[in-house]
Design a protein around this nucleic acid. Structure first.
Length: 583
RNA sequence: GCCCCCGUAGCUCAAUGGACAGAGCACCAGCCUUCUAAGCUGUUGGUUGUGCGUUCGAAUCGCACCGGGGGUACCA
């Protein structure tokens, strides 16, 4: 929009600089930070500071330059006002013209508004990564929401995304579960709520493991039988793993997540051991067995000091570790897909481990290793800096949280909107509840700890998903009552209210917000944007009438409401939050 | 010891080198005969952990401290 004019202006400025022995490229425009007015602003301080002929302090000279450039630029087409103030040059847009083009563009594009052109790049995002036979808690939720949202945002920024999930289907936790099952629940089968059932049996098994005399020994013996390849245990494992996978599927469906590729830890165990042999042969790994494990001493290989440390890639007894399997998995990913980038959504405590894996693959000569990216996020805590622990019973289970939030949301819907039918109420309650739960998980920066507390999780007011959802519902309500608005041109030839200018400016920023969020893998900036947009719409809603005005004014405002709804829904969807049509 | 992250209003968080550091929650006072009050308006609240530096300009960049969290060879 207005590209020609913008180019013309920067040419004029360049020419001015050239004629006055000033360096070019020092004047950059950004949007004016005042609300209610709309235009572009350039600070003249950088130019003033680099002027060899300046006399006096920089701010004063910047003001002088701003005034001179203001005179030279004049008032190009599409602008209504210009000013030089405090060292800034401000150019104000012709709001009617700009408003009409922004709103028209959005309503033409619909939910494609803000999407970038395809880049031809393919990126894999590995996230969720649950352990089978164990419950999911709100810590896992942060991973799923963050990963899913990053996928959505990358897709919108023009990349092809492969959603991958790496399932921890082997290990002590699985053996514990199966052992407990065989001894105390043999023959039982999960009911409708598989997740819950698996979780209950897991905590029972874990309790016995730590408290019940002799149970640990039985589990160890069971583990040995598993290692020897006991067929019956293997069959039970396949069966119970499937129950767990079914339970995960239920949760993913509830959360609106799907995966393109599932990797099992058990799939890469054997190839991991082969790969470790290779590392030893190549002289990269040192085999200390049987007393010591197989290690890759990265610091001495690279000549660094206490930076990459030592990576243990195989236990001294020859059994595999997380690291053993991570290496072949990375290779498999790049073999299967022509990936330009491989992203790992894993919590920050594994930063060193991820750094080591990447370095080892690099040393092995894989050129793509540099395209691995650890998207580190902080954990979810409880108030008072308490870490969630299943041992202490402080874990907040996803199940309980969703149930409680949905119940609470249902009460609110019933009170606010009693004429809705039961199914709709339930649908709305679920969307609101899930939104409320998800929002805090992505509205904070990835590197900040999220402190979970029930009060704010169940608070549907203020900076929250329900606030944004509600704004969207209000917009929808206006549109529904207005009926068809096809063919109505939005001319915006009225004097725009500050709240209208503000709202339109935000709408125009959505494409930039999406690409910024994608570039930095930060849904949090989009979450903040969603809130700002909703707030701007609520301002508009309170200040400007739509249905009670006539003619062009009504048509323009209806188009604006329509465009706002498009952008609100788009942004919510990118965050993995659904937008109900009534609340 | 070494490495990483965090420190902004009573609490939870924004502000990605630019104009007076902004929201929400909480508190107090208002607004439903007006497109849904899950909303809006107003009041209160700050030596941006400390110090020094870089810069015309620093919450933001650098250095040194202080406080909190995490990681640091056979957990994941």
């Amino acid at each position: 929009m207005f590209e020609d004019v913008k180019n013309q202006i920067s040419q004029q400025i360049d020419q001015f600089c050239f004629q006055n022995d000033l360096p070019t490229g020092k004047v950059e425009f950004r949007s004016i930070p005042f609300s209610g007015e709309w235009g572009m602003a350039a600070p003249l301080f950088p130019l003033a500071a680099s002027d060899p002929n300046k006399t006096g302090p920089v701010p004063q000279h910047a003001q002088f330059l701003a005034e001179r450039i203001k005179d030279i630029v004049g008032l190009p087409a599409g602008f209504t006002r210009s000013e030089a103030v405090k060292g800034y040059l401000n150019l104000y847009f012709d709001t009617s013209l700009y408003a009409a083009s922004v709103v028209e563009k959005i309503n033409e594009s619909g939910h494609n508004f803000g999407n970038a052109l395809p880049t031809g790049q393919t990126v894999m995002v590995e996230y969720s990564n649950p352990n089978t036979h164990k419950p999911l808690h709100v810590g896992h939720l942060r991973n799923v929401i963050l990963g899913g949202s990053v996928c959505n945002i990358l897709e919108a920024s023009g990349k092809k995304v492969v959603r991958a999930n790496y399932i921890g289907d082997i290990g002590l936790h699985v053996i514990k579960w199966m052992c407990n099952y065989e001894m105390y629940h043999a023959g039982e089968r999960p009911g409708e709520d598989k997740m819950r059932w698996m979780a209950d049996l897991y905590s029972e098994a874990d309790r016995r493991f730590h408290e019940q005399e002799g149970f640990e020994e039985i589990v160890r013996a069971y583990f040995a039988r598993w290692d020897e390849g006991d067929e019956r245990i293997h069959d039970l494992w396949l069966q119970t793993r499937q129950w767990s996978m079914d339970g995960f599927a239920q949760v993913y469906e509830l959360l609106g997540e799907h995966f393109d590729r599932i990797y099992f830890e058990s799939d890469v165990e054997d190839s991991g051991k082969v790969l470790v042999d290779q590392l030893i042969q190549d002289g990269l790994a040192t085999d200390g067995r049987p007393e010591n494990p197989v290690i890759v001493d990265l610091d001495s290989l690279l000549g660094t000091k206490e930076e990459y440390r030592v990576a243990v890639v195989l236990r001294s007894d020859g059994t595999s570790l997380y690291a053993t399997k991570e290496l072949p998995l990375a290779i498999m990913k790049f073999d299967e897909y022509a990936l330009d980038e491989s992203i790992y959504v894993i919590d920050v405590r594994q930063s060193l481990h991820m750094k080591q894996m990447q370095k080892i693959l690099e040393l092995m000569g894989y050129p793509w290793a540099k395209n691995m990216h650890h998207l580190a996020y902080e954990i979810v805590n409880l108030p008072g800096n308490v870490i969630m622990s299943s041992r202490d019973g402080t874990v907040v289970l996803l199940d309980d949280l969703v149930r409680e939030a949905t119940q609470r949301a249902l009460e609110v819907v019933r009170e606010k909107n009693p004429e809705l039918d039961e199914d709709t109420m339930m649908d709305v309650a679920q969307k609101v509840a899930l939104g409320a739960i998800k929002y805090p998980m992505i509205s904070r920066e990835n590197t900040k700890i999220v402190t979970f507390d029930w009060d704010s999780a169940l608070d549907f007011n203020g900076q929250s998903a329900p606030y944004v959802q509600y704004a969207n519902v209000r917009a929808n309500s206006i549109l529904r009552k207005a009926g068809e608005l096809r063919g109505k041109a939005a001319r915006f030839n009225h004097a725009l209210e500050p709240s209208e200018v503000n709202l339109i400016e935000l709408l125009s920023k959505l494409p930039d917000e999406i690409s910024k969020s994608a570039r930095e893998y930060k849904p949090s900036s989009l979450a903040a944007f969603a809130y700002e947009l909703a707030k701007a719409f609520n301002d508009f809603y309170n200040q400007c009438q739509v249905l009670k005005v006539d003619g062009d004014l009504r048509d323009s405002r209806l188009a604006l409401v329509q465009a706002t709804k498009v952008c609100l829904e788009k942004t919510l969807n990118l965050l993995g939050i659904q937008a109900p049509q009534v609340m």
